[in-house]
Nucleic acid binder design. Sequence first.
DNA 1: TTATTATTTGATCAATTAATCAAAATTTTA
DNA 2: TAAAATTTTGATTAATTGATCAAATAATAA
Lengths: 210, 210
Amino acid sequence: MKEANKEPKESKQSFIAEARREQIVEAAIKTLDEIGYVSASLSQIAKRAGISTALISYHFADKYDLMNDLITRLLEQSSSYILERVSRADTAREKLRLFIEASLAYQGTHPARNAALLEIIFNGRTPENIPYYKLGDDDEELVLIELKRILSEGQQSGEFGAFHIDVMASVIQGAIGEYMSYTGITKRVDLETYAAELVSIVSRAVGINI
Amino acid sequence: MKEANKEPKESKQSFIAEARREQIVEAAIKTLDEIGYVSASLSQIAKRAGISTALISYHFADKYDLMNDLITRLLEQSSSYILERVSRADTAREKLRLFIEASLAYQGTHPARNAALLEIIFNGRTPENIPYYKLGDDDEELVLIELKRILSEGQQSGEFGAFHIDVMASVIQGAIGEYMSYTGITKRVDLETYAAELVSIVSRAVGINI
DNA sequence: TTATTATTTGATCAATTAATCAAAATTTTA
DNA sequence: TAAAATTTTGATTAATTGATCAAATAATAA
């Protein structure tokens, strides 16, 4: 179990090793949520997992390897949650509504995971010192691509009017992200109201034809 | 010059001390922009300022004091830039347009300051471990308050239609912030196009009556 | 069973951190 | 000028960081 996953996606790691990795990742999420990225040292993570720091080093090549695994899992989870919900609708208009609602709902149901995701996206950097938020992860991209597909689909079907798809997608994601990260709005407007109002605002913006 | 500013906002610090503080803050901005908050140690900042680390400790009570000074200056600058531009317009519609354009333009003309602001807002925490982004700084609030005032003004004058002001403000700020922080959109759409499209989208969202 | 392999720990490593301090250098004051 | 106050540095502090290693423990295979 020396090697960190290089190429092999699914490989021959024992059940116990995979379970341990998962436990460590969960502890890392808790740590990020509680004390933030800057203070999230291996010893803090180990403390929350109830294990020694050396054990983390045994299961992960280095801290970057751990954070990478963490962010991959978090993005996979939120992505599949959102994409699954969206797939239930037929029309672009309905898909757009479900996209917004699901994106916001995920935060409400997974606050710690959401906080951890924010911490690592905004603070984490690759070994080459490139910020994660400038990277555009695959799973992150997946959601963005789906959003653009919905917008494009709506335009072609005549459900939506004319607008710049990249910018519109950015507006929608920005509005969702704003509620995720900024507590000011969170305190003033509850999740359901925000979702409903956002759907209404976006509907007007895309020029929905009843 | 032992004491760090506790209550005295403007006090009796020599010109040279103030100049030195400013130099240190500028070096801190450069450091945050170049290597990010996590790596921005006092020694890294001192290196870029061409001074010893002890000198930073002499002029600032501690690292938090420095970062606090830094974020205050950065927010003051961007706030006054935006508010000054907005004040040139008369109608709510024009103010809204200038607000969006000025907010985006500031990023284009001050990329390093913008990057530093992002780094510290998302990574910095108070001594009580509260993330800055959950705090709602005074100068940050200033801009938000002005935005809401514009939206409210437009509704009362009949320029805008009906919408939830808090949510609409959040959407607009989110769309602006998205372009600031996420490189994906930055690479696909240039600043001017984004500003123009965003104005167009928001105009539709607020329901502008020609 | 025994031998082999996988897992886990505690001790330890060098590096870096923020901060302190006495002494030196500089500037200001008298 | 000389004295006093301010500014600056280099050395040092204790604490923490991520990582390594040999030895101990546990699980698996023979």
